[in-house]
Write a protein that binds this DNA or RNA. Sequence first.
DNA 1: GTGTTGACCACAG
DNA 2: GCTGTGGCCAACA
Length: 104
Amino acid sequence: MSETFAQKVYVLTRQIPKGKVTTYSAIAQALKIKGAARAVGNALNKNPFAPKVPCHRVIRANGEVGGFAPGPKRKQAILKKEGIIITQGRIDLNKYGYQFKIKS
DNA sequence: GTGTTGACCACAG
DNA sequence: GCTGTGGCCAACA
């Protein structure tokens, strides 16, 4: 399968359950590529599967919402609709942080 | 094939 | 607590 790194990112992002969020770094680790958080963000930025990939459920490792094409404001609003409580523009990864199953 | 860019992360000061 | 610097990776010109 000649799936590119981005394609894998979209698949993982699609697997994120509603009401939960994950970080770019977490996706990178799920792909066994630690440190590729930047590449993950790049893939979501293109986001050819915009309505199919809940890119708004992907936030930064420090708990910030990160960025969003239409605007970070939009991202926060959607997350709030999902049932996620945002405090000071940040999200509690401790509560809503979703972790991918990483095979050793 | 090389260089630049980007919705990032971690560490040091 | 914030700012600055370095490093990682993939996609695009």
